[in-house]
Simulated assay, not measured.
Amino acid sequence: MTITAADLVVPYITAREGEEADSLLNLNVHIGPDRRPRLGYKDEAGPDRDLRGVLWARYSMSPGFAGQPTGNPRWRLVHPLR
């Protein structure tokens, strides 16, 4: 019996081909609310940080039918937004 890619169950959190991290060139250091240096995006918006102020990685998405991820799985990578 041969197992094909269509037979595999891919965990939702797995990154897919075509999904890429934002460029490191989009990061900078600025002074945070506690007056200490803080890493952030040059064009940072509210959803870039969680409720504790932790910076989340920006990563592109490849939604297909019904919003499900498309593309071949990149098994060793976790998509940070999923």
Rank of each mutant, 00 (worst) to 15 (best):
P33V: 14
S23V: 06
G40L: 09
A66D: 14
T70S: 13
E44G: 01
E19L: 01
P37H: 07
F65T: 08
R52I: 08
L25I: 08
Y59C: 03
L51I: 11
R49P: 01
E20Q: 04
A66M: 14
S62Y: 01
P47R: 06
A45G: 09
H30W: 13
R38Y: 12
W56H: 15
F65N: 08
G67Q: 03
T14P: 03
V54H: 00
Y41T: 06
R76P: 00
S62G: 11
L51D: 12
R16Y: 01
D43L: 14
L39R: 11
N26A: 11
P63D: 07
K42I: 12
Y59A: 05
P63A: 09
T70L: 11
T14R: 00
R49F: 06
R74Q: 10
R74V: 12
D48F: 01
N72G: 11
G71T: 11
D22A: 15
N26Y: 01
Y41G: 00
P63N: 10
S62W: 04
I31E: 07
A66F: 12
L51M: 09
E19N: 03
M61F: 14
I31A: 00
A66N: 12
P73Y: 02
G32M: 09
G46Y: 14
R52G: 12
L51T: 09
G40Y: 04
D48Y: 03
D50C: 04
G71S: 08
R52W: 12
R52C: 07
A57L: 15
A21W: 07
L24C: 10
G67W: 11
